[in-house]
Nucleic acid binder design. Sequence first.
RNA 1: GCCCGGGUGGUGGAACUGGUAUACACGCAAGACUUAAAAUUUUGUGGCCUAUGGCCAUGCGGGUUCGAUUCCCGCCCCGGGCACCA
Length: 1032
Amino acid sequence: MKKYDHKKIEKKHQQNWEKDGAYNTKEDKNKQKYYCLVEFPYASGEGLHVGHVRGYTALDIIARKKRMEGFNVLYPIGLDAFGLPTENYAIKTGINPKIIIRDIANTFRRQLKSLGFSFDWSREINTSDPEYYKWTQWIFLQFFKHGFAYKKKMPINWCVDCKIGLANEEVINGVCERCGGQVEKKEKEQWMLAITKYADRLYDDLDKTEFLEKIKVQQRNWIGRSSGVLISFALATTQIGADKKPQINADGKIVLITNVQEFRENVNIDSKLKIEGREFSIKELIKFKLDDGSFYLKLFLSGGYVLADDLNSNSFILVKEKDTNLKIEEDDITFENKKYSFSYKAHAIAEEVFGEEIFKKGESETFWDYTSGNNYLSLGIVDKNKKRLDFLGKTIKADKIEVTNLRESASNLRSSATFTKVNVFTTRPDTLFGATYLVLAPEHELIRKMLDDRSIENKKEVEKYISETAKKKDIDRMAENKIKTGVELKGIKAINPAYRQAGPLNKKEIPVFIADYVLDSYGTGAIMAVPAHDERDYAFASQINADNKTQMGADNKTSADRIEIIKVIESDQNLYTGYGKLINSGKFNGMESEKAMKEITKFVGGELKTIYSLRDWIFSRQRYWGEPIPLVFCNECKKRVGNSKFQIPNSKKIPNSKLQIQNQEFNKGELLNPGWVIDEKLPFELPDVKKYEPTDTGESPLASVKKWVNVKCPKCGADAKRETDTMPNWAGSSWYWLRYIDSKNDKEFASMDKLKYWTPVDWYNGGMEHTTLHLLYSRFWHKFLFDIGLVPTDEPYIKRTSHGMILGEGGEKMSKSKGNVINPDDIIEKFGADSFRLYEMFMGPFDQHTSWNTNGVVGMIRFIEKVYGLLEKLTNNESEDVDNFLNKTIKKVEEDIENMKFNTAISSMMVFVNFVYNKNKISKNNYKKFLKILSPFAPHVTEELWLETGEKESIHKTKWPEYDKIKEDKNLTIVVQVNGKIRDKFIIDSNLDESQIKDKALSSGIVLRWIGDKEIKKTIYVRGKLINIVTI
RNA sequence: GCCCGGGUGGUGGAACUGGUAUACACGCAAGACUUAAAAUUUUGUGGCCUAUGGCCAUGCGGGUUCGAUUCCCGCCCCGGGCACCA
């Protein structure tokens, strides 16, 4: 008998397949396509890992089987080459990353080929190849042009060790995902990709896919969609006492202003105005009190208008807010007639107010504004001597203004007061009446404003808290069982809209806090706190109360300042987060939560709102080894963009034109990011540098290559600078499956014809660690490319699976430091690729973690040797029982492969081989069929044996065997139970019917003994399997 | 805390839709071959007992059923995802 020599066999067939190009694929319209995709390896010096082998073998089995079933199969591979391991190695050794990558690619290629995977190597890609990343850059430019990329200064996660900005998702439990080092907050200008614009579709379209359910769940978790309600609370800078003035018109009738003074005193944040036929609501209301006791007003209205009180007449000025970013220079002046000092703001551009040209350049250039807002066109105009010239806007006679809901009197204000609105997000509007305080995130934009205009009394304390929060690392802010901290904004009160709407109830005003348990980046950055029905609010309120208690003596606190819990849902607990019947809720008492949510929302004019925990994608890294971002900064272009001629007013935007470029000279991205212009001469190549280390200032090493950085602007020819940040590692892998389809194309990233044939990917397998981020990012890119008409499908993958991790022999994760890493090369050398492949498929359920056991590979080589040995036992006679057994085995293997149950597929083939061994013979015909079903698992040895049987063509080009409808075995084993316990079994002829089987069972001595003298109540017969005799 | 998985021999793990629990493989033990070892091969291998028979075992406790690893209720433990997410 010939000895099984895996080395000889495997090498021989690998060479043959390569020589024949056996697995190279071409489009073939006559054949149905099947696209198998595995995550390409991430370049690292360690080479192939046994974990790669698991996933690649599984899809190799699928690919090979699909080919045998007549599909035109694409199974490509490449290298994910940009990224930190390579860069770090370059920093350490000074070797050019290009050289490192070349070596790594060679290693991977050799290792993958030695496993006999049926990859189409002619399509191999490498993300760091300029021919590849040219298209990564090109796709980025499409994002940019369509306004999906924007530069934003924001606190980013900064890894102290890696000296790199991390995306939120790269920070795991507050530490760097890669190095485990400390993460700090740092302000940095970053390119962002607007993935949140796709949040809904990324969420909903999961239903169209056949991803494993747990993968869908992970994707949904990450997007974190939650539906709730926006409710606006009024904020007032000055406390309005309980001894309120009577309402003027509580039932909300429209009145004309006839008495300006009355209007000034009684207008409130909920009032509605009608001016020249147009309705406005009030966003912010400022009351100024003058020395003589009179008031004047400034109202920020909906639609971007400002209504300003003209002190000297019975009229108001209506102007339009400016919605662009104006350059503002600050100065202080004293307004001569009055003793008040106003903040003075000069605006550089002042051409468009109501579409009129208001003043001529050079004459009276500046505007003044007595608010602190940044983005408002001022109300007045002064000349160079800072003397007031005129108001802008339209003068509206007071009696032309109709007002609804004039209610609250503010005549007892001790000083000027501001009323503004703050939106909170809640999923529990039914608990609104229980809102006993408001919490804003320390970073909330309103706070800065309120600090600036001095409406917060305890400014020092608040500022201290804000700066403490900023210093905190994420890990502290997330720490478990953290004691909640916060500071009350003294001088600010909120008015619960439920009570405001309901009329004069006791609890009108509630305190406002800042606390870091509220996150600025989620929802509106503000919450209504309902301690009676929310755990976090309860914890915070308890904390504040406890603090107050200790200060009671010193600070003269009274119990009135303590936060009171109002239960609005019937329960006997202080804290109850469930649903139920409402109490203490005015006219909603007795209503069920579910209904109350809708009704209360309606009552207070809440707005239904869906929010996400998904954030936009920080897309720049201050690193060398990545794709350069193909943008140039040009000051000349910035000026031209800044010129209003190039601005597109909101009103002139084409409806639903998100994806249309609206300006001939500047594209949407260039308008959005003034000064940044695209460079379409791609690839935008990575220059060679001397040092690969990021700088301490956080700039990429590219910034030091002056020759590279300084360029002429591709748009106007002026001096300009290149962007020196590079793309994150995720970029190249966000579209690679598309490049495989047409990897040599130098005109486009892939031709539409070919895309139409091959997309979507039918089956995509990869590691579990990529089922949130990579999957989401790549789906996002694909959807965007679909929207701009460059790919034919809106989802990239039909089916996505993930293989479980292979742990070391001790059950721990394989790592160099533990010394439990298994090198694939050693296993192939010792046992051969076929045994290795079989073992990895046999070791356990594909999607579960399992630990490596080298002894297990021995079992596989024994199995292969048995199959090899069968060659000696061939006969020409078919035997019926082997026939039947094989038939069942084919069916089982076929179904198991489709269901990724590779372990039981192999087990059933082992059972078959053991069966044949006992028979000691098998017909050549059956043997060949068996080789076919084994061939996807063990491609080399089956090829060898196939040729040994006298065949000339490769087994991998043959057809997958069909199985017959399951023939019933002639002889069946029937189990006899008495009262559900097995007592006997016998073999019967399959023709027997139930009563005959029953008779037979009742003739068994053992069975009769167990029945004894008890009466037989009934018998249950399961066809071909068992009969149960029930007595009792 | 919420949401997914999972818990079966010494080990990795089987068991379709409620119908013979422990397939297959590793390991272990004994035998054969061998001077010997390795390799190979044969047999055995869940536990317990009063052993040709019987009882108990699928994380724990209940329930439904003629019959439950499978379905229901209540717990415990392990792994993963999300997480002051309002």
